[in-house]
Design a protein around this nucleic acid. Structure first.
Length: 183
DNA sequence: GGATCGATCGGCT
DNA sequence: GCCGATCGATCCG
């Protein structure tokens, strides 16, 4: 764990998922791997909240795949989508309540490999060298993956809320404005 | 620029 | 077996 006072701590994540999703915009995701540091500013998030949210993985109860969502706030939930893409989520709210924020988009800040694209939730994990082996780690204590607040100035009017993407099966819940984008 | 569609494969609805 | 919190190529206009 680097000696950095600006690493987001448990209380940041231990809140309403919609608040955490919005507050994560503009924060800096840091990945340390192979002696290198890769950073990206978070530009887009989505909230997935509880077993009653028809878009949330937890909607059919706990399985081996999604059990991390029931952990304490501040853990990383990483899972494979479409048998191909690794997606990064941060667990929020109370222990035993399944909720998480999906990180959809970042702006590369360092460690940039121009061959790798960073848009889209599947590509940003590739850029950050994140895979399922990191799922379940505590990002308030890990030195491999954590999020810092560099006091980047967010103008609240630049935050747009939109419906979530790729959840056509979610019936009425697919229209919920639980996606947050920083202009 | 937006819409559409096939690839691809792990987890379980 | 079936389906999916996606990506990228390709088509149309």
């Amino acid at each position: 764990m680097p000696d950095d006072k600006n690493i987001l701590q448990r209380e940041f994540y231990y809140k309403d998922t919609l608040i955490v999703a919005k507050n994560l915009l503009g924060k800096v995701l840091v990945r340390e791997a192979d002696g290198k540091e890769i950073k990206g500013r978070i530009l887009e998030t989505e909230a997935y909240v509880g077993e009653s949210d028809k878009a949330c993985h937890a909607r059919h109860g706990k399985t081996k795949r999604n059990e991390v969502m029931w952990k304490e706030a501040g853990h990383a939930y990483i899972y494979m989508c479409m048998g191909l893409h690794n997606l990064l989520n941060i667990v929020t709210e109370a222990k035993e309540f399944p909720a998480a924020v999906l990180i959809r988009k970042i702006e590369p800040l360092s460690g940039m490999d121009p061959k790798l694209k960073t848009y889209g939730p599947g590509n940003l994990t590739k850029y950050l060298h994140i895979d399922r082996s990191l799922s379940g780690i505590d990002i308030t204590k890990s030195d491999q993956l954590y999020i810092i607040d560099d006091k980047y100035d967010i103008i609240s009017k630049n935050i747009i809320t939109l419906p979530r993407i790729g959840i056509d099966y979610a019936e009425e819940d697919k229209e919920l404005p639980w996606r947050f984008v920083l202009k």
